[in-house]
Nucleic acid binder design. Structure first.
Lengths: 151, 151
DNA sequence: AATTAATTTGTAATCATTACATAAAAGAAA
DNA sequence: TTTCTTTTATGTAATGATTACAAATTAATT
């Protein structure tokens, strides 16, 4: 039973229905098998920026034959087809995000929640990088979130 | 025999002599033992942004009793005393930087070199993060460096 | 010199991720 | 349907960076 997470920034996060997810996967060249749909649903609709392990634990009660390897394989497939990006904030854990356009991440060091925020580093011109080809932009901030601050 | 790397951006990278390093460590509450001095020297003067493994391999011929654990311990000590920061660009490898003020990193996907560039995310005001306490800022870009582009 | 504290080291453990080979499922051909 | 082929999914073992830990070495203090 998946409950949707509260959406912090509606402007940059869209919940999809199962038919929409099926279509989205197909459109991006991915055959929409059950594990793929469920994994994408969890990633996109439920909880922000989970690790592979979190995805596995969230789905295993529902998809009782799911294996962790499948989660990893599926994330690699999603990556290859550019429908997810990896987020690196802590060493030793890769998180995933279904929002693929450039944006920033904020990780709260108290509650560990990861927030998206609108920010596109590609808009900035960096003199020192003239002559360089810029391909991927990453921005993240660590601190204490509003909700933890107010406690 | 350590040769100094060419410095790409003199403005944000300073080579230190051994006595300067000793003093810098002491000033920051770190007793300047031989391994600590050599590790800091390598980190600061020679090559930009090495992993613990790279530091170990670079120094083992000179400090023939050095152990990898010592490199890790020393980096943790440096971190605790805020004279280095960690850089995360690839999963599965932590790199270190002796430049601790906010700045960006560029990693070339061809030659794997990591460049510094001047950029302070703290200067940007991010509306969505009002009420949040921002503590650490991280910015990195991947692409192809000028030197590889020109080849 | 003897004692204590700090530093360094080697070995083993940890744990996320990957490799790989098999099993299961889906799709195509007959 | 049945058989054959391809794609997906799974379980187990391997990898490799980092950490834990205890012993050994070095430095500092009495």
């Amino acid at each position: 039973m998946i409950k949707y997470a509260e959406i912090e920034s509606e402007n940059i996060m869209k919940i999809m229905s199962i038919p929409e997810i099926k279509k989205y996967l197909s459109t991006n060249g991915i055959k929409p098998s059950l594990p793929r749909i469920k994994i994408f649903e969890y990633l996109n609709n439920y909880k922000s920026h989970p690790t592979a392990d979190e995805i596995y634990n969230a789905l295993i009660d529902d998809l009782i034959t799911l294996s962790k390897t499948t989660v990893y394989n599926t994330m690699d497939l999603f990556l290859k087809h550019n429908i997810v990006i990896q987020i690196l904030i802590e060493e030793n854990e890769i998180r995933y995000d279904s929002l693929t356009s450039n944006h920033g991440h904020f990780k709260c060091i108290k509650c560990n929640k990861v927030y998206d925020f609108k920010y596109d580093l590609a808009d900035i011109s960096i003199k020192e990088l003239e002559g360089f080809s810029l391909i991927e932009y990453h921005t993240y901030i660590k601190g204490i979130c509003k909700s933890c601050n107010e406690k």
